[in-house]
């Protein structure tokens, strides 16, 4: 099971890298979404898939799933949710102000602003 998950996570990372290297800003943001999915699944996988019962105290159950990775993922999900929301709004503002979503055109320095 861990092997299958690792391969899937590898594909998610590959897709994320491919999308983040593209020109359109929206594709880049979709890439960051895939990247955080991959990272979250990796925490789950690295915690191991042992245990039968969900980590809720029940009488008669002794073999629980490791609760720590689930708490870490929950934290990481809300953080990446907040960052993604901010990033999307900023991409929208940048589209309004700069009138492009092509990353190649987002160049410039002091002399050529």
């Amino acid at each position: 099971m861990e092997i299958i998950m690792s391969v899937i996570i590898g594909f998610l990372f590959a897709g994320a890298v491919y999308l983040m290297l593209s020109r359109s800003l929206l594709r880049v943001i979709i890439g960051t979404g895939l990247l955080s999915h991959g990272a979250h699944l990796l925490i789950l996988t690295m915690g191991g898939f042992g245990g039968d019962a969900p980590p809720v105290l029940t009488d008669g159950v002794t073999d629980f799933v490791d609760p720590l990775p689930q708490a870490l993922i929950l934290t990481a999900i809300v953080i990446s949710f907040g960052v993604t929301a901010f990033f999307l709004v900023m991409a929208y503002r940048a589209y309004q102000e700069l009138e492009t979503d092509n990353m190649k055109l987002l160049k410039g320095n002091d002399e050529y602003d």
Binding site: T32, A39, L42, I43, P69
Partner: peptide, 11 residues
């Protein structure tokens, strides 16, 4: 995201 990956491996 890379930091999360590293923490996962360390864990």
């Amino acid at each position: 995201a890379f930091f999360v990956t590293t923490v996962a491996m360390l864990y």
